[in-house]
Simulated assay, not measured.
Amino acid sequence: MSFDLDLGGQRALVTGGTKGVGAAVVRALLAADARVVAAARTTPQVAAPGLDYIAADLMTAEGCAALAREVLARFGGIDIVVNVLGGSSAPPGGFAALTDEEWQKELNQNLMPSVRLDRALLPSMIAQGSGVIIHVTSIQHELPLPEATTAYAAAKAALSTYSKSLSKEVAPKGIRVARVSPGWVETEAAVAFATRLASEAGTDYEGGKKIIMDSLGGIPLGRPAKPEEVADLIVFLASPRAAAITGTEFVIDGGTVPTA
């Protein structure tokens, strides 16, 4: 049996599409012959072949609205939206270090871009009677690290709950909504973080990775996921091969989250 994902010609938007998991999703969609726009705050000087970039500050309502208008103008509609954008700049120090401003930053980076883009792009999906939205959450909403990720984890939990509710609302209109919840992924940023921890601890990169894995309570698989592994899951879920899947969250974390 052929495992063609049947994504040829599908119009896709990927937020956070220039680095890490987002860039891997873009590459996988292009390899499946989809038409792809990658959005990020800054865009590369040299574009990948067959790929459009749109620079947008998605932490603002204006940036999300401008991106949605540009995508619809270029494509005349949209078939797939993958909201990868996320991250945290909150300081360490637990709850006391989280001012109202820090909380708002985490929500603006990890929840509101998805909410705003969905609100702007869903009408075109509803009009055509089809579409797929993938929200990238995080295992942090189940396993938060109190020292530094409380606000990030809470924002991702809100994104997960919002996604579930949205899926129930739009499924009867032909639109699927799914969530992908990664654990630690070996992105460029993760490599830099592990390298810094290794230097501070007087060890090598593998030692730095172990420090991170230990802080998560261990990864039974023994390693972080690769961006390409997360991207493959996302692109499968966006494809017609997953046509009966909606409303579900798929964890890809090497077994980090303990389950019964």
Score class of each variant (00 low, 15 high):
residue 8 G to F: 05
residue 15 T to C: 09
residue 18 T to N: 13
residue 19 K to F: 05
residue 20 G to S: 09
residue 21 V to A: 10
residue 24 A to N: 04
residue 26 V to R: 01
residue 32 A to N: 08
residue 33 D to V: 04
residue 35 R to P: 03
residue 48 A to K: 06
residue 50 G to V: 10
residue 55 A to W: 01
residue 57 D to I: 03
residue 63 G to V: 04
residue 68 A to P: 09
residue 69 R to W: 07
residue 70 E to H: 11
residue 70 E to P: 08
residue 70 E to T: 13
residue 71 V to N: 11
residue 72 L to K: 05
residue 76 G to V: 03
residue 77 G to F: 02
residue 82 V to F: 03
residue 83 N to H: 10
residue 87 G to D: 11
residue 89 S to R: 10
residue 94 G to K: 12
residue 94 G to T: 12
residue 97 A to M: 10
residue 102 E to A: 13
residue 103 W to P: 01
residue 104 Q to P: 04
residue 105 K to Q: 14
residue 112 M to N: 10
residue 113 P to A: 09
residue 117 L to Y: 00
residue 118 D to I: 00
residue 118 D to Y: 00
residue 119 R to T: 05
residue 121 L to W: 02
residue 122 L to D: 00
residue 129 G to S: 10
residue 133 I to C: 13
residue 135 H to T: 00
residue 136 V to Q: 04
residue 137 T to N: 11
residue 140 Q to V: 12
residue 140 Q to P: 06
residue 144 P to T: 13
residue 151 A to E: 00
residue 156 K to N: 00
residue 158 A to H: 00
residue 160 S to C: 12
residue 161 T to F: 01
residue 167 S to A: 12
residue 169 E to G: 04
residue 176 R to I: 10
residue 177 V to I: 08
residue 179 R to T: 09
residue 181 S to C: 14
residue 182 P to K: 08
residue 183 G to H: 11
residue 189 A to E: 14
residue 193 F to G: 05
residue 204 D to A: 11
residue 205 Y to H: 15
residue 208 G to K: 01
residue 211 I to D: 07
residue 214 D to F: 10
residue 215 S to E: 15
residue 217 G to R: 13
residue 219 I to W: 01
residue 226 K to G: 07
residue 230 V to D: 00
residue 231 A to M: 09
residue 231 A to W: 02
residue 231 A to E: 08
residue 232 D to I: 03
residue 236 F to M: 13
residue 240 P to V: 07
residue 241 R to E: 07
residue 241 R to F: 09
residue 248 T to W: 04
residue 249 E to Q: 14
residue 250 F to A: 04
residue 250 F to T: 02
residue 256 T to M: 15
residue 259 T to V: 12
